[in-house]
C-alpha cells in the first residue's frame, strides 16, 4: 500500500481549506511539487490565491524548484508569508 503525502496547511492556507492537515494520495514514484500544488488548487479553489504567494516546504526544508519530487510518506507544507514578532 502506497503511503499518502501529509499536507500541512498554515494561516490563510488552513482557512481556505478548512483543515490544518490532509493525507494526499500520490503515485508510488512521486509527483512534482508544482503538480501537487496544482492538484490542491483544483480540489480547493479558495487555496489558489494563497498558493501564489506561499513558500512550499518538503520535510521542513523550503523547495527552491517546483520540479522537486514529493514522494509517498513526505511532509509537504504550504507556508503563507510569515508574520512572527
Amino acid at each position: 500500500m502506497v503511503r499518502p503525502v501529509r499536507v500541512l496547511l498554515f494561516a490563510t492556507a488552513r482557512t481556505a481549506v478548512g483543515r490544518a492537515e490532509l493525507d494526499w494520495p500520490v503515485p508510488g514514484q512521486g509527483i512534482s511539487a508544482r503538480a501537487l500544488a496544482d492538484e490542491l488548487a483544483r480540489a480547493y479553489p479558495r487555496l489558489r490565491p494563497t498558493l501564489r504567494t506561499s513558500r512550499l516546504v518538503r520535510n521542513g526544508r523550503p523547495i527552491d524548484r517546483t520540479s522537486v519530487r514529493i514522494r509517498p510518506g513526505d511532509e509537504f507544507a504550504v507556508h503563507p508569508p510569515y508574520g512572527g514578532g
Binding site: 498554515f10 510569515y82 508574520g83 512572527g84 514578532g85
Partner: peptide, 14 residues
Amino acid sequence: LIDELKRTVPIWKT
C-alpha cells in the same frame, strides 16, 4: 535577529 526572524521564521499571527 528581529528583522530576520520576522522575515524567515514560519510563524503566523491572527
